[in-house]
Design a protein around this nucleic acid. Structure first.
Lengths: 179, 179
DNA sequence: AACCAAAGTGAGTAATCACTCACAAAAGTA
DNA sequence: TACTTTTGTGAGTGATTACTCACTTTGGTT
């Protein structure tokens, strides 16, 4: 990976997150990266190829975080960490998830392409296992509900719409009897 | 409102919902509506003016639905109806909410403009009042959590990602002791 | 030094975009 | 009927878009 190649990716990620994929021109990316526009296409083939690369990086990051979560042995601690997961992940790399969200609703064809490589399955596995270990009455529905809640937290955090995240976490900890 | 004016709105709503606002050209709207492209601008000023009109219609629809919800006297029944609210609303007019979601993440400037006219405040008022009437221990946090859950349901339903909505509703009814 | 593949350039291109405008048809209104 | 207003047309425009291509520069190998 060349220095300029990395620069293109970094600037593209920043601009995609800030202005959206569709509203960011390859011309602007080239200018801000201090690079000729042609180089983008030499390296990534197309604008969508550039997005592909960034999405893959995001997926890799998310899988890493999920692996860390999975490694927590104690079920109670794992569930606690799961509740804190959205904020922890977003604080590390907000741009990747802003891009993911912006394409999820705007570009239907592109979303279809990425849908398979989703990490939802892995996340569901972790949560499901946790609720089973904790002997919840209906682990499947508990899993599905918590997945919804976490997804919603992701969206709110990306839009800076959740000031009292910590309070919400401790509220949920009480509900789940984790004290 | 002219016949052609209504036709433009209907087609625009359909195409915005299907392909997204940015990916829908005024040319295509005109063609599918059987109307000259100029007429769109004569009636709505700009492409964004057309979107404004549709968003206002959506806001009016949502406020109507919220008023209906508010009119339910019995707290238990109102909370039950609140849980069914997302599916009930989306089943009636899916296109409006697909458009709302697609612009929420793609067009940052446009979102800012609509953010004030949000009906979130009204929804929060209804739910908050319900939890207080039902003597929940922490009505504020309960409200915020349920708002998140409902928002998540909206998103999942729009993307056709929730097959067992009914099961989820009855699961939540048990959780909230509504049986 | 001679050579070559990869990295990098930047002017150019065809397509698409939202939007304009001079004009025509239709619909009131008197 | 004579008029004004509203509704409607469609060719045209400048700006922007993603992408191409002929070419140059750079870095490493023999």
């Amino acid at each position: 990976m060349t220095e300029k190649q990395r620069k293109i990716l970094d600037i593209a990620l920043e601009l995609f997150a800030q202005d959206g994929y569709n509203s960011t021109s390859t011309n602007k990316i080239a200018q801000e990266a201090g690079v000729s526009e042609g180089l983008i296409f030499k390296h990534f083939g197309s604008k969508e190829g550039l997005l592909d690369y960034l999405v893959e990086e995001g997926v890799a990051l998310m899988n890493e975080e999920l692996d860390n979560l999975m490694r927590i042995e104690n079920s109670v601690d794992r569930l606690k960490a799961t509740l804190r997961f959205p904020k922890a992940v977003i604080d590390k790399n907000p741009a990747y998830w802003k891009v993911q969200m912006s394409i999820k609703f705007a570009n239907h064809e592109i979303v279809e392409k990425y849908h398979n490589s989703s990490f939802m399955g892995k996340a569901m596995g972790i949560i499901s296992e946790t609720f089973e270990e904790l002997n919840f009455e209906n682990p499947q529905m508990e899993t599905q509900l918590l997945m919804q809640i976490i997804a919603s937290f992701f969206m709110s955090l990306i839009n800076d719409e959740m000031e009292n995240y910590a309070e919400m976490v401790s509220f949920l900890e009480k509900k789940y009897n984790l004290i």
